[in-house]
Design a protein around this nucleic acid. Sequence first.
DNA 1: ACTTGATCATAC
DNA 2: GTATGATCAAGT
Length: 212
Amino acid sequence: MARADACAGRTLGELARRLGLPVPDDLRRHKGWAGNLVERALGVEAHGRSGPDLPELGIEVKTIPVDSKGRPHESTWVCTAPIDSFEPGPWRSSPVRAKLAKVLWMPLLDADVLADRRVGAPILWTPDADEEETLARDWDALSELLAEGRVDQWHARHGVALQLRPKAARADDRVWVVDADGEWVQTNPRGFYLRTSFTKAVLAREARLLNP
DNA sequence: ACTTGATCATAC
DNA sequence: GTATGATCAAGT
């Protein structure tokens, strides 16, 4: 947290200069740049590897683009959705819960120029009872759709907090799955995301705790 | 304006 | 190919 606090208020340009890294003109071809930069600034040693960013602490680090009032602009990637011969399990042992058990949110404030975007106040979050219940309900519904092979329902319009979305390099990427009729069909890979509205509520709640 | 579906780079 | 890091941009 000391390292995270030390990043707060700094611009991405400052962090990059300190690490000797170039700043791209924009993120169109560097979508993970800011996330990787902040991880390096935090001294995350495991970046690029599987598992939590801070394995000893079980903490996942996520940058989140926000406006001047701390409201997120984007949904948040969670993890790949298991769509190939998937056996549904309880929320408690789900990959989504494992990923979200402890998240260090690093807000990145808007700016006209990428290098001028500033890091906001870091937030170490664990889902509270209400959030956990919302996530669990979404998990139960979505994992059932996945397990039943209802491929036509594998779209982004389900879920209050969690949603299913395509996750691939290209729209024509395909994987084989067994559909509801037991037939092998092809579909694109999916992933779990947190809706912007959910993350917005999380950050607002945490902000109130910091600033009652 | 906002959401859904599509996309980009890199490591292993 | 799958995982990491996400944002872009078409669709509604």
